[in-house]
Nucleic acid binder design. Structure first.
Lengths: 197, 197
DNA sequence: CCAAATATAGAATATTCATTCGAATTTACA
DNA sequence: TGTAAATTCGAATGAATATTCTATATTTGG
């Protein structure tokens, strides 16, 4: 009997997820058909469904991957001494639209989470992690005396995430936002709100 | 010959928009079928289509209405002397989920705007207005010496909008955000960033 | 009060699309 | 090397649903 080839399976799954992420970012989740993903991944529907059971499974997997990526990214930025600079760097990375979920797709997933318990659970796990990491970073910076002791790490982390989500969504949605100005204002917000009084 | 009854037309349109907004908020734009809107508005599809040419026309109309509402709301809050308090009130109004577009629906519309030129144009007009109003408010407060002269009104306005959008989306999406803490952190952000140094 | 236009209804259409199914092909172990 | 399992394919299915079409009911101006 033939045994299941785990390497090949991993490759195919990655191939599918990459295609799906590309489609979702370009056309949105609801604007993307499974056929489009199949075409981009260069495989048949039957083949795709051999690896993923549904369209929602795809966002689930993509979100989990993205969560790890984001965690690693934050951990890296935070290793440096200057926490405020690090956080600012992290936020700016969002509108440099590097990799992973961001902007419009992130907004769409949040919206989906409001009506789909499955997606909501995924997002909740993800945000709990990110929020926790940011909060821990803030706590450390408080102990080292870099930022004000008089702020709540968890609440502040939530504000940072929300701001980041809102800015990148606004950018993708072409709301007429001036990115240069928004970036400068964000820097000011962070510096004045976090630093010791 | 019979003449077109403008009062009745206005009533029916309002009836439809109210139903559509309700459905969209509960189930999302893509999660809402025209049939569901018809049921909620208590009228037939044929009747509905007599007043609106498509589903997108519905968001267009809803967004325009909401824009006026938001403008009026801001204008009211801004009349008072204390601008920072007024802005904070405005942002808190968002998660009291009063009326109009907010939270998940707002996020979904932003996401839609990224892929639909029609929606994008609507949103751009709306945000230009809101951003302009907020910026003007900030300018006035600068002149009256209430807030720091050393900040850019437009960039700051964009940050305020983004933060508001992000927080209300996070709330609706059940991301595990702690609203109390987020609110407190937001207040701190505004007070420390806007007030004179 | 009568035609003609409007307001309303609801069935029909046509398309899109996620998912399934059965078969064909390839591969690796015995 | 044969064969059973894994891999891959692509057509078929079936449901959902935005929109259209045709018909009925209601109103109003003349």
């Amino acid at each position: 009997m033939r045994t299941i080839d785990r390497t090949r399976t991993a490759e195919r799954k990655e191939q599918i997820l990459e295609a799906a992420l590309g489609c979702f970012q370009e056309k949105g989740f609801h604007g993307t058909s499974m056929a489009a993903i199949c075409q981009r991944a260069e495989m048949s529907p039957g083949h795709l469904y051999h690896y993923f059971r549904s369209k929602v499974d795809l966002i689930e997997a993509i979100t989990l991957e993205d969560c790890k990526r984001a965690e690693a990214n934050i951990a890296k930025l935070v290793k440096k001494k200057d926490a405020v600079k690090g956080l600012l760097r992290g936020m700016e990375g969002v509108w440099k639209n590097g990799q992973g979920i961001h902007g419009a797709l992130n907004a769409e997933i949040l919206a989906e989470a409001a009506h789909n318990e499955r997606v909501s659970a995924i997002i909740r796990r993800r945000n709990d992690r990110i929020r926790g990491l940011l909060a821990q970073t803030l706590k450390d910076a408080q102990k080292s005396g870099e930022i004000d002791e008089d702020l709540d790490p968890v609440g502040t982390a939530s504000v940072l995430i929300a701001l980041s989500d809102g800015l990148s969504a606004a950018q993708d949605a072409h709301t007429g936002i001036n990115i240069q100005k928004a970036r400068a204002a964000t820097r000011r917000f962070l510096e004045r709100s976090l630093s010791r009084s």
